[in-house]
Every structure is written in structure tokens, then in C-alpha cells.
Design a protein around this nucleic acid. Sequence first.
DNA 1: CCTCCGGATTGAAAGGTTTCACAAACCTGG
DNA 2: CCAGGTTTGTGAAACCTTTCAATCCGGAGG
Lengths: 351, 351
Amino acid sequence: MTVQDPHEAGPADARAAGIKDVAAAAGVSLGTVSNVLNRPDRVSPGTRAKVEAAMAELRFVRNESARQLRVGHSRVLAYVMLDGRNPFFTDVAAGMEDTADEEDLSLFLCNSANLATREAAYLSRLEQQRVQGILITPVDPGSPQLDEIARRGTPLVIVDRTRPTASHCSVAVDDVVGGEIAVRHLVEQGHERIGFVGGLLGVGQVRDRREGALRALRAAGLGPDHLVDLTTSQMGVADGGNAGQRLAGLPASSRPTAAFCANDLLALGLLQACAALRLRVPDDLAIVGYDDIEFAAAATVPLTSVRQPRRRLGRTAAELLMQETADPGHEHQQVTFTPELVVRASTYPRA
Amino acid sequence: MTVQDPHEAGPADARAAGIKDVAAAAGVSLGTVSNVLNRPDRVSPGTRAKVEAAMAELRFVRNESARQLRVGHSRVLAYVMLDGRNPFFTDVAAGMEDTADEEDLSLFLCNSANLATREAAYLSRLEQQRVQGILITPVDPGSPQLDEIARRGTPLVIVDRTRPTASHCSVAVDDVVGGEIAVRHLVEQGHERIGFVGGLLGVGQVRDRREGALRALRAAGLGPDHLVDLTTSQMGVADGGNAGQRLAGLPASSRPTAAFCANDLLALGLLQACAALRLRVPDDLAIVGYDDIEFAAAATVPLTSVRQPRRRLGRTAAELLMQETADPGHEHQQVTFTPELVVRASTYPRA
DNA sequence: CCTCCGGATTGAAAGGTTTCACAAACCTGG
DNA sequence: CCAGGTTTGTGAAACCTTTCAATCCGGAGG
């Protein structure tokens, strides 16, 4: 076990040790060192120990590029997320991490921040890196770049979006059902005039939720005129507050007794506005949000909300990706989850 | 520009085209194709066009592993963050992305989720990948793994933590000052008995904030007995609510008129408890939080909070990393930012 | 017409690992 | 003591790109 330079070589180590140096130091061949790395069971305990000692001594760090060049693919998965600052996506990512851990893969997160150019740059870089697979919540689900990547052989799964053609696996949550259970709950509480607070969210997620709301009303024998639209330009807290102002300004005869918000930020803003306007929640106005973000439960009046199985969404997406990796010729699957309602104080039964 | 297989080869393309195939298709040499890729100015417009056409035709995707093997380093930066679900870290990451964009590098995010083993796995994988540099908010800033990585030559910058020895660059925010400005503000509002709500946050961040609080009291001629400790086990919303219960239970003579919380989640929990306990904020209890997360401003009573320059923190960390990459022999720098107070309704002047 | 020059292009080496066919050493049981 | 089998170790080829010294070519200057 002789080592070229046993003294703690200066800060600038001559050159990082490779498998070759380890082999020399341990007095074995290249192939043996490689075996220690990849099939330890094929090498006798004695030599294995020698090799491992040499690796430690030389501070050997395996060169992943070389390995990858040889074997053709890497041990990493990537999730290109739409908005890294939105807790929804980080929760989805947490689910993917669960699966990645099990498979002993690394998950790298890329944040496109809703910028098509940045998304494109990430995708291209990931493809060049020959990552094992890509998970993505795309800025534009219709982008041809997604097809090209899949065609060239990198497995790709679409998350929280769907596309007309079944050219990829995808996982999503049924937004129509989400809207339906939210409003059905309100109807069951005796509400008959319901405000819908929502803006223009990409790809008709808002539209679907509204559609579900209408369906629930219809099931209760109530027409579409029982849904009062309070349209917002964005989907932030401020927009919810704004909608609250407008709602409070309606004549008592046409003012809703309950509101269904297309996401929790809107709902929180609405809640805040109610406090300012001296409207009691849920007595004067019941509120249902969407997403069940952490702060929904922590609001001054804990918020009833439609919960999406975020973590499971991520888990399933990653599992689909694994399937596709294992069998490139498989049938693409479109998995749809059903959301559930979490009832809290903001819709407790009216007195 | 002849191509082996011009018909849209079936879904299973024989084998991905390499630089060699492109060269053949374009009727030029390997080196020329490489030049088109790396020094387009060295090749005549005519041939360049030919080569580019061939690349498009063959759907050439550069093999990053091979490139990297040759040149020795990659074009990616990584941020190993402590908790991907905490908006603080994702904001820091956004700042890093700014810098990475400018340098035309990719930033990959890794979430250690506060798990030392997962962090170790990511670090080791990143080192094997020969990433250009690592940014990290470590689970344990004292971990020797960090030193080893730096010693072996991968630039590494510590984010939002400091360590005793100056063996790395680091960026952090001055928590003592943060505590000081928070409590000074409360003292200026006339409060003389102040509750400190905080748990055991890693590496004495909580300790520093408390230290700053004491300093502010001292500066106002008030002794340490004017700080009432409400210690929590964790730092979540529930813990804040819990602290609120205890606070409300104190005899009027010793009950604080204001509370300084070590983070905004605690503050929001406390706020919520106050509503339930019929304590008016800020009249009966003024509240200052820490971090100024998005929901601080959106709370029912908007929260006064200590804001850290998150994005700038990330930006600066990445810049430091760039410096270290450019000049490996440079002096490590410890950059410290100063937080600022954002005053909102939860501490408006008492009537 | 020859030389020389500079820009464009070429060809081969190098980079670190994995893989695989093969050799060596060892063991088992007859 | 040997045949045959198993376990361990070897060495060279292959993966795809970049780099750089060398070559080629067309034209300017003599």
C-alpha cells in the first residue's frame, strides 16, 4: 500500500486521484478497483480492504462523468417546477424525493419560475446531461420541446397538467371534482348563493373548478345564476382582499352567503378583508379555499379547503417515470387523483 | 449532406447521433464539428451552415458527460438547502438563480430536508459530478465533510450559517442586530415587559436573536428581567399558539405587553391564539415576528417583522462562489448582512 | 513563377471509467 | 494426483468529446 505522496500535500493537490492511482497504490489492476466500486461481492475481502484503504488514503472521488460516459446514463432525476416559491410544488417535490430515495437516485430541482426561456434552458441542459428522467410542470404543456425530448429517448412525465394527446405519462388532480365537493359542502350547509373568487389560471384549472361548482349547484337543483362571479386578475392575497371589497358592496339581496375561492391565497385575502369589514366568518360569510396550504389551517379562522394529494402526486409521477425508464415501449398512462375536502372553522354549521 | 436513415426512424432510434455522425453527414471532420460547437468564429460560414443542418437533421444532442470528462468541470452550480418547503430558502435560491443566469450556469436545487444522511448523499454525488461549485445551508455547519470537499477542490460557500473557523466563504445575516432592532422598536412604543417566544433553532440563531433583544433592553436602561422567556420545543405555528396560552395565563402583574417571536410561524400562531383568547393585537399585546414571510403581511392583523435580505443573500453567496472558482487561492470572506424592521399593524402605536 | 502568410480544416491523443473475454489460482471429490 | 468447476483478478477496448499541432489552400507580395 505505497502512496506516492504521503505527506499531506499542500492545499493544491497535484491532481485528483483516479482509479488508476488507486490501483497502483493498492497493487492491483484497474479492473479490480472498478469491481470494488461496482460489484464488491466479486472481490475477496482481503483485496477489497487494501483497495478501500488506498482510496481513503488518496481521497479518491469517483469521476461520475467518466462513469456516465461509459454506461450511457446517470443516476439523477430532475423536476423542473413552475414556481419554486409556491409550497404546492415543493410538496410535490418532497413526494418525488421519497421515490428517488427508494431507488437510490438523486433528485435535482430546477425552478423555471414560469419563464419559458429558463425552462427551455434547463431542459436542454438536462438532456445533454443524459439524466435518467425528467419530471416537469411545464409553463406551456403544449410545447413541442417536450415531445422532442421524449422522442429522443429521455423519459418525461408531466406533473399537475394534462395535454390533449397521450404522448407522455402524466399525473394530475381532478379539478372539476374539487370544485364540486367544495360547493356541495356549502350547499349542504344551507347556502344557496355562492360567490366564486378566481382569476385566470393557466390551462383552465380555474375553469374546471368553476365547472365543478356549477355541477354541484345543478345537482342541488340550483341554476347557474346562484353562482356569483368575482373575477380577479391575479391569484394572490391582495386579489382576494379586493374581491372581498366588491362582495361587501353588493346589495344584501344579491350578496352571497358563502364564497368558494380558486386557491388559498385568495381565500386568505378574503378572510382578511372580512375582518376589516366586520363580516363574521363563517356566520356572515362562509369561505372555502383550494390547495390546503400550511397557512390555511393557521389562519385566524382556520380555513376549509380542498386538499390535493400533493406528496402522492409527486410520488406517483416519479414511479411512472421509473416504469417508463424500465420499459421504454410502455403505454403512457394518465393518472388522475381525486381531491378531498378538509372542513375547518370557516364553514362550520351556521348557528 | 447525406443521412444514413432519412425516414423518421421508428420510436426506437437506433442510437443517438454523436459528433461523429454529424461529421459524416456534413462531410467534414470531427474537429470541425467540435469547432462549430465551441468556437463558431473559427469556422467558415459555409461549413458552419452545413454542420448545423446536419445537427438538426440528426437531432444531435451534445453529450455533456464526454465534454465534461475532457474539460474537467461542469457548467452547473448546486444549492443544498436545509428545507425546500420553507419559503425563506426558496427565496435565497431565487437570488442565486439571478447570478447563475448572468454567468450562464445552471443552478440545481437539492433538498436535504434537515436530514444529515440525505445531505451527505447529495454532497457526495455532487462532488462526483464535479459540479463547478456548491452552495449549502448545512444541517451541521461543523461537519468535517464540508472541509473535505473544499480541500479536494470543489468550491463551497456556506449560506445563512457561520462557522468558527474561516475555512470557507460564508454569507449570513446578523441575528443579534435583528433581535436588537425588533425590541428597540417595542421599547420605543413604550413597552417595558417583553415576551420572547423561541425554541431551539440550530446553531444559536435563536440565541443570537435573544441576545440582541437583551441588548436593546439594556440600552434602554432595562434589565434582563424585563424579558419573559416563553420557550417552545419547535418553531411551528402550533408552538406559537401554545406560547400564547401560557402567556395569557400569566398574572396581569407579570404579563408582557409585547412579544418578540423568533420566527413568523410562531408569531402567526401567537396571533391566532390571541384572537381565540380575545386579546386584541396590538392593544393588549403587540407582536413582532422574524423573517417577514409572505403571509406575515397577509395575516388578519398584518405582522411587524424583521426582514432578512433573502434574495441578496443568495445573490451574494453565488457571487462569492464565482470568485472562489476564478481564483482558488483567494481569501475566504465572511459576509454579514444587516436585517431591517418592517413595521405593520401588529405594533402600531398604542392608543 | 515562387514564397510566404493566415485562415480553415484535419487527425490523433487524451481524459477516467466500465465491461467482458480471458487467465490464474484455488478447491472438490474421485 | 488429476479433472473439472468456481472464485478472483487482469488487460484492453469502448464511451464521446475537446484540444492542439500539423496540414492544406488560396492569395498577396516579390
